[in-house]
């Protein structure tokens, strides 16, 4: 099941849970608003979950995409520094360690989602997930 937002959503193209005020359930059951999440919430939730592991994904490069309003972000993921590229809308928010929500176009994120964001830059370390058991 892919998390498509409804056409009526003002966050067209983005999943609905990034909208300011969205209720997020942490792994221990605690409920928080998306804008109140902190680095520890993700780290602790991953610890509780058992299956998921938090990786540090460093932004290596941000380049324009042929898709309008999209960018291609190259990450260096985890201890192995695996290179992974993702194509996302410029307003798509990532969670940067110790900093919080950040996007390539924070003004647009704030406009569309009311979620306040910092500017995502090369060198930022984002929270990402992998499966724990890869043996």
């Amino acid at each position: 099941t892919s998390p498509h937002s409804s056409p009526s959503s003002p966050s067209a193209g983005l999943p609905p849970f990034f909208m300011k005020g969205s209720i997020i359930q942490l792994a221990d059951g605690e409920l928080k608003r998306v804008e109140d999440l902190r680095t520890e919430d993700f780290v602790q939730s991953a610890e509780v979950s058992g299956e998921l592991k938090i990786d540090s994904s460093t932004v290596e490069r941000i380049e324009c995409s042929r898709t309008p309003n999209a960018v291609i972000i190259q990450f260096s993921v985890g201890e192995n520094k695996a290179q992974v590229c993702v194509e996302v809308l410029v307003e798509y928010p990532f969670f940067v360690f110790g900093q919080g929500w950040s996007s390539c176009c924070p003004d647009r994120t704030t406009q569309l989602l009311a979620l306040s964001c910092a500017k995502l830059s090369v060198g930022d370390v984002c929270i990402s997930l992998t499966l724990k058991s890869l043996k």
């Binding site: 990786d55 990402s128 997930l129």
Partner: peptide, 19 residues
């Protein structure tokens, strides 16, 4: 009010494991 799981919010950047 919909409640979303925490892990929806962060990308799943599993590197491709090629053995």
């Amino acid at each position: 009010v919909p409640v979303f799981p925490w892990h929806s919010l962060v990308p799943f950047l599993a590197p491709t494991q090629s053995d």
